[in-house]
Design a protein around this nucleic acid. Sequence first.
DNA 1: GTAATATGTGAGCACTTGTTCAAGTGTTGC
DNA 2: GCAACACTTGAACAAGTGCTCACATATTAC
Lengths: 122, 122
Amino acid sequence: METQVPPREKCESADVDEARVRETQEHLIDGLTATRLAWTFKALSDPTRVRIISALSHHEMCVYDLAAALGMSQSAVSHQLRTLREMRLVRFRKEGRHVYYTLDDAHIHDLFHQGLEHLNHD
Amino acid sequence: METQVPPREKCESADVDEARVRETQEHLIDGLTATRLAWTFKALSDPTRVRIISALSHHEMCVYDLAAALGMSQSAVSHQLRTLREMRLVRFRKEGRHVYYTLDDAHIHDLFHQGLEHLNHD
DNA sequence: GTAATATGTGAGCACTTGTTCAAGTGTTGC
DNA sequence: GCAACACTTGAACAAGTGCTCACATATTAC
């Protein structure tokens, strides 16, 4: 049995319509939050970036090895890493000629895995 | 078969490099999974869609009210709802002239809120 | 110093995305 | 029948994305 929301009359009955709209607006997240939230999800909305996150979720890696593991060009990987850097999803440290990347914090790991679980549930 | 010389034997110690790459590849999610996961996140990567999800997370709404609550044109909302439909994030039922939309399942709600918490933690 | 290695970056291009405008369904009421 | 309403859809366009290519750094080895 469904939730006991009384079936609405019409859209024309202004009070019901307006009440629903007004109540929704009160709980609605604001534009800035929506934009920032969308931005976060966008960081994970590309297969290449998802695979990079997947690789880095095990241990830090340098660009060269990352490119080898993913079977991609260094340039393409570097471009995506730049994006991930700007989105604060990854951190890096330099060691001689190498630059080692890691996930910035555990949150990313969590979101990544929550998404995976979501997939497996379907 | 041709001798596939891997284009790397530098990175100083070749064995560590290869072991790291090979181990990473074993744990790496496959291309299809990465694509599907990216696809899921992409559904949530637009501010308008995030706001629609936010609105629908409280109760089902028809397109007209949704447009009113978000302050957008019906057409723009309808286009995004189409995307959300194709991505299986929302469900709809028709009732006369109205089309009522709801979130498809609780997973979406969870991802949405996990993302929100992630924002608040920064 | 030069050369090789490891990574970064800008330009260019094909492709995708989100919006608006206009026209299209389908349902209701007269 | 017809008109109003609720919603969908197609075309068009600006804006954004991700790749390749070529060049620019920076570090190390010689």
